[in-house]
Amino acid sequence: MNSDKIQHADITISAVSPSQYPDDGLTEIVLAGRSNVGKSTFINTMVNRKKLARTSGKPGKTRTLNFFNIENELFFVDVPGYGYAKVSNAEQNKWGRMMTDYFATREELALGILLVDFRHEPTDLDIQMYDLYKYYDIPVLIVATKADKIKKSKYNKHSSIIRKTLEIEPGDKLFTFSSMTREGRKEIWDEILTYVGDERE
């Protein structure tokens, strides 16, 4: 798969229960992060599209597991963003059950990506998300978004804050990313594809 020349990318289904998950058998890469961390923008940048994943002025709008088919080789699975105060506790609990059902049972799930805002210290909910990946023994890739807002001279400081706050385990990689400059896109794709395999190339 050539990540620079992605021809096919579309949303296959928005699922709320395991019976609705795709049965293609493709590798799945799950994406989680706070409601305003830039998940939709990340997806659009990674697949060279402007509007594949809808960016919304209303954080917390994703309420399903959205499966995006990329080149008929893998799925990006966008899960509901967390930490949006206007969503009721009952609704957030429902999302939580939906996500943990998916994490616990989905054999196709190969990698979890945790998106955090490079500008800020990870929140308690970010820590919980990282720990949830670990609990279900899902390999984790941390992507620090909005890197263009930080001076290069401050990168090490912000990276170390993220590593320390999340207590990132050895072997878990942290990438900086910017949708504006496309920084990190190729490196993140290279890492993702190690979980997909290249047997179809």
Rank of each mutant, 00 (worst) to 15 (best):
A85M: 10
K86E: 10
K86I: 10
V87M: 04
V87A: 08
S88D: 03
N89P: 02
A90H: 12
A90N: 15
Q92S: 13
Q92I: 13
N93K: 15
N93T: 11
K94H: 13
W95L: 04
W95C: 00
G96A: 14
R97T: 08
R97L: 14
M98S: 06
M98P: 07
M98Q: 08
M99K: 03
T100K: 12
T100C: 04
D101L: 09
D101V: 11
Y102M: 09
Y102T: 07
F103V: 02
F103T: 02
R106H: 10
R106F: 04
R106D: 02
E107V: 11
E107C: 00
E107R: 11
E108K: 14
E108L: 09
L109F: 09
L109R: 05
L109Y: 02
L111A: 07
L111V: 05
L111G: 03
G112N: 06
G112T: 07
I113R: 00
L114N: 08
L115C: 04
V116Q: 04
D117V: 04
R119Y: 05
R119G: 11
R119P: 06
H120E: 12
P122T: 10
P122W: 06
P122L: 01
T123R: 00
T123S: 15
D124Y: 00
D124N: 10
D124V: 05
L125F: 01
L125P: 04
D126Y: 03
Q128V: 05
M129T: 15
M129G: 01
Y130S: 08
Y130I: 01
D131I: 07
